Amino acid sequence: MALRRSLFWRVFAVNAGLLGAMALLLLFSPVEIDAPIKPTQALIVVGGLVISVIANALLLRRVVAPLERLAQRMETVDLLRPGQRLPVGRSDEIGRVLAAFNRMLDRLERERQESGRRVLAAQEAERVGIARDLHDEVGQVLTGVLLQLNSIAETALDHREELDEARQAVRRALDEVRRISSELRPEMLEHLGLVSALTELSSSFGRVSGVRVDREFRSSLPKLTPEVELAVYRIAQESLTNVARHARASRVTIALEPGHDSVVLRLTDDGRGFAGAPEEHGGLRSMRERALLVGGALAIKEALGGGVEVRLEVPTADVAPALEVS
């Protein structure tokens, strides 16, 4: 280890130099220490002590400052906000610690992205399985019940009113099963594209929640990969769910427009907004992770005039990373 790069030797050299200077001063100067000490002698001793303390403080401050920045970054680092690196402008032990911390973040972000891809792939596979079971099993059972009620209603004229109520209840349950199935497995996204899928999603949200939905979809949008389209759809779906649960909004605007080698999704409501800084957990964390995995950028902030604005920008098919999320 080179002495010029060793923190230990630099601290040692400064302290040794100061102690040596004080020793030479006592050996070869006419300064004497009497008992009791004289004011001039006390001034010399105090001056040497002050110089030693200042020199040590300046050196240690330069050493401790990057460690303080490192501690602050370690307490606040978020793997869903990549790129939070510390500058490394030195080659001593502190510089190696900072470089090792940056390499650790690189490794953790890669591992988080890989595990996130596997989790999201498993979630989508589970959604597809549940949607299939709802459609094939529960849907068919309800359809069979409805046919039986229709058959009974033709002969049991005395109970026609009760049977009509039962048939209406079965039809509502069947519609609900179909709605849940379509949300779990957005077949329209696969067959008709993102705009049609978002149109159906927002229309269904408006019918169920009673919130007015305004759509602003550009007629011509750049092509997105299937993985990116699915991420945009899921983030829009989660955003609308949050509006229904928490916003107390009367109006929602959902927009889709082209950006610079990207497509931008904006979803704004006129609800009560955030009570202070938003705490990102659960659904919001899932939204940010989906955006990160497809190379997108997600911003959640207060909307102009109140409410919340969700802005998602995702890369087009020409520049999107190759992922396997669906």
Rank of each mutant, 00 (worst) to 15 (best):
R207V: 00
R207S: 00
V213Y: 04
V213C: 02
R215H: 02
R215W: 00
R218I: 00
S219Y: 01
S220D: 04
L221T: 01
L224D: 08
L224T: 12
P226E: 14
P226H: 13
P226Q: 10
Y233T: 08
R234L: 12
I235P: 03
I235C: 14
Q237A: 13
E238N: 15
L240V: 13
R245F: 12
R245M: 14
H246R: 14
R248H: 09
S250W: 01
T253L: 14
E257R: 15
S262E: 06
S262F: 00
V264A: 01
R266M: 10
R266G: 04
G271W: 06
F274R: 01
F274L: 05
A277K: 03
P278E: 06
P278W: 04
G282N: 03
R285L: 13
S286P: 07
R288S: 10
E289C: 01
R290I: 11
R290S: 09
L292I: 07
L292Q: 09
L292Y: 02
V294I: 11
G296L: 10
I300E: 14
I300D: 14
K301E: 09
K301I: 05
E302L: 10
G305T: 09
G306T: 07
V308Q: 06
R311T: 15
L312T: 05
E313S: 15
P315R: 11
A317L: 08
D318G: 07
D318R: 12
V319N: 12
A320P: 03
